[in-house]
Amino acid sequence: MLGMLVIFALLAPPAILLAYRFVPPPFTPLMLIRLTEGYGIDKDWTSLDRISPDLQRAVMASEDAKFCTHDGFDWEALEENIDKLQQGRRSRGASTISMQTSKNLFLWPNRSFIRKGIEAYLTVWLELLVPKQRILELYLNIAEWGKGVYGAEAAARHHFGVPAAKLSPRQAALLAVTLPSPLRYNPGKPGPYLSSRAGVIQGRMYAVPYTKNGVCKEH
């Protein structure tokens, strides 16, 4: 029985990821957790071609500039973090969009070595089974952008009153820099830090690869 449970635990995620290659996820663990905390669920699945390219670029510039070229892991950033930990220095985030998508689809939002190990296992399967364009589409549709607000379409309408396709470069940059702390920051009413950070990302967003016509291409 234990062996069967282990096999199921190992093989169920790839099967689910294969399904998510073609159909939208109905919900994520974080959505259910936030629901128990008293937040609603405001989401509206939107295809990547109806999400502003500026938001796609801004999110990659802010979260994972190497998204189009890595295999799911930013090995250089991981090595840098290991070096900093060995020196007793504070490490920075090395989580890629692929890793965050795996976490958001399956896992809980706290940090531990066990969760990180599971996240890495899921990320390998995600990159094997799902094209880059679809990974970005999944991420932009399930990311948390406020209390009970999930995905680019709901976020654009909630914070700026426009559909995701009509986001301006500034609005896109503000949404992108909110991602690390969506319950703390409000992109519709940015403070000095968020405004400054958005300005930096707005300056970088056109220098990173972006997804168009199904492949990652240079702008």
Results as ranks from 00 to 15, higher is better:
residue 4 M to A: 15
residue 5 L to D: 06
residue 5 L to G: 08
residue 6 V to S: 10
residue 7 I to Q: 12
residue 7 I to F: 14
residue 10 L to S: 01
residue 13 P to G: 04
residue 18 L to A: 14
residue 24 P to L: 08
residue 28 T to K: 02
residue 32 L to Y: 01
residue 33 I to Q: 03
residue 34 R to S: 10
residue 36 T to A: 05
residue 36 T to L: 13
residue 40 G to S: 15
residue 41 I to M: 12
residue 42 D to M: 09
residue 48 L to A: 01
residue 48 L to S: 00
residue 48 L to H: 01
residue 49 D to H: 13
residue 49 D to R: 10
residue 52 S to N: 02
residue 55 L to A: 05
residue 55 L to T: 00
residue 56 Q to I: 07
residue 58 A to S: 09
residue 59 V to D: 01
residue 61 A to I: 10
residue 64 D to V: 11
residue 64 D to K: 13
residue 65 A to H: 12
residue 66 K to S: 08
residue 67 F to R: 00
residue 68 C to N: 01
residue 71 D to V: 15
residue 74 D to H: 02
residue 77 A to S: 04
residue 77 A to F: 00
residue 89 R to P: 04
residue 93 G to R: 07
residue 94 A to M: 00
residue 95 S to D: 01
residue 97 I to Q: 06
residue 102 S to I: 04
residue 102 S to N: 02
residue 111 R to A: 11
residue 114 I to E: 09
residue 115 R to E: 07
residue 117 G to R: 04
residue 124 V to D: 02
residue 125 W to D: 01
residue 125 W to Y: 10
residue 130 V to I: 14
residue 132 K to C: 08
residue 134 R to M: 00
residue 134 R to W: 01
residue 137 E to M: 02
residue 137 E to S: 05
residue 142 I to H: 01
residue 144 E to V: 07
residue 144 E to C: 03
residue 146 G to H: 02
residue 148 G to A: 12
residue 149 V to G: 06
residue 152 A to W: 02
residue 160 F to G: 03
residue 161 G to K: 06
residue 162 V to D: 06
residue 162 V to A: 08
residue 163 P to I: 10
residue 165 A to C: 07
residue 169 P to F: 15
residue 170 R to K: 14
residue 172 A to I: 10
residue 172 A to P: 06
residue 174 L to I: 08
residue 175 L to P: 03
residue 178 T to G: 00
residue 179 L to S: 09
residue 181 S to P: 04
residue 181 S to H: 15
residue 185 Y to H: 14
residue 186 N to Q: 13
residue 189 K to M: 13
residue 195 S to Y: 09
residue 196 S to P: 04
residue 197 R to C: 14
residue 203 G to S: 15
residue 204 R to C: 12
residue 204 R to N: 12
residue 204 R to A: 12
residue 205 M to H: 07
residue 208 V to C: 08
residue 209 P to Y: 06
residue 210 Y to V: 07
residue 217 K to V: 14
residue 219 H to I: 14
residue 219 H to Y: 15
